[in-house]
């Protein structure tokens, strides 16, 4: 079981890394926002897995809130990019 969690985390770290590179490389605002969106989703999953690692259910709330707020942030940025905030 431990190994499975290790492997999952390593996959996620690589995914985060790739998304971060895309964030820095751009080239357009849309790409960066896509990278932000991906970062958020991966981190939400990561937080949930960490809550399992800590074995405390109270931590799950953070992941939930994180998902909600990340979504709203992306919508707002998209609306800004449309030029119609």
């Amino acid at each position: 079981m431990t190994y499975i969690i290790y492997i999952s985390f390593s996959f996620m770290i690589v995914g985060l890394f790739l998304a971060a590179i895309r964030f820095i490389k751009g080239p357009t605002a849309g790409d960066r926002t896509v990278a932000l969106d991906t970062l958020t989703t991966i981190l939400v999953a990561g937080l949930f897995l960490l809550a399992y690692l800590f074995e405390r259910i109270i931590y799950v709330d953070v992941a939930l809130v994180y998902a909600v707020l990340g979504f709203i942030g992306v919508i707002v940025i998209a609306r800004y990019l449309e030029g119609a905030l």
Binding site: I7, F9, F11, G15, T38
Partner: peptide, 24 residues
């Protein structure tokens, strides 16, 4: 868990490799 993390990784890779915003 394994499937999920593999797809998360693939999401990162897809963002990295695809040529334009829509494909990403």
């Amino acid at each position: 868990l394994l499937i999920g993390s593999a797809f998360l990784f693939l999401g990162g890779l897809g963002i990295f490799r695809m040529p334009d915003v829509y494909n990403r």
